[in-house]
Design a protein around this nucleic acid. Structure first.
Lengths: 141, 141
DNA sequence: GATGGACTTAACGTCCACGTCAAGGTGAAG
DNA sequence: CTTCACCTTGACGTGGACGTTAAGTCCATC
């Protein structure tokens, strides 16, 4: 097939495919008129790239998977280098989730604090106009 | 204080401070020789920006907080616009966490599958050289 | 007065994965 | 023949938040 068909079947653009080729991730035969020509294996390569990208892999990180596919394996993730990338990515994702959960907690805390503004100890302080913050609820720094 | 001191006390660079100014987030007095001159409020503004950025806010999203600070509030997050940004950001973060948890599950699944490679039903198939995958463990698409 | 450090503006460079435009070649259909 | 879709290479644009020179000014110190 030619580049347009490959792009369509892989759900991407011809520009992206040429870019992959420039990065050494995709190779093409050339027909007499100079047009690129691809086989079904190329489609699998591009789909592997796209799938990994959608998961959050950088293009460069898909390289081991592509090479694994090219080596004749059924899927791109059965090779040691690919597994290593998987592991690294899993660690990254878990760290990122942890950070985001911290942020989520922070945001939730601030929001509840702002919606129920300044949970002051009015029950204990009736006499002064100037209200005191509750004991044990320090200000956010 | 001058820009170098402000940068150091805020934990950033002079380039960043000039950039904030170009974006209308930070303002400075000028001394006779043309040098920028800042007060303590500027430090609070920059720290507000930096804190929000570290949480994952885009620079533009810090604007309501900065304006809230400038309006004379103790913290930048007590104004309606800031609260709105908080809410939006919380939704974004939660959606992102959800996506990442999906990715984490996918990665974990693939890793365990690759570490215990192809849990084949050898116990049931002894006669053929070509091994069959277990019933109920479909291939990943 | 020379050196050095901090400051000024202007402007180009970085990263990533392409998008987009320009100018032209190729092959089939009408 | 023209038209049209499809292809080619080359090169500049995008976005975000600055980093990094370059060339010059200002002030204090040796």
């Amino acid at each position: 097939m030619r580049i347009g068909e490959l792009a369509e079947r892989a759900g991407t653009s011809t520009r992206a495919l040429r870019y992959y080729e420039s990065q050494g991730l995709l190779s093409a035969q050339r027909s007499a008129n100079g047009h690129r020509f691809y086989d079904e294996d190329a489609l699998r390569v591009v789909r592997e790239i796209r799938t990994l990208q959608s998961i959050g892999f950088a293009l460069e990180e898909t390289r081991p998977f592509v090479e694994c596919l090219r080596a004749g394996n059924e899927t791109g993730d059965v090779c040691p280098d690919s597994v290593a990338v998987y592991r690294r990515k899993l660690a990254e994702v878990e760290a990122y989730i942890g950070r985001l959960e911290g942020v989520r907690g922070h945001l939730r805390h601030r929001l509840t604090e702002l919606v129920a503004p300044a949970p002051l100890c009015e029950t204990t302080v009736h006499l002064t106009e100037r209200r005191q913050p509750c004991h044990g609820t320090p200000r956010v720094g």
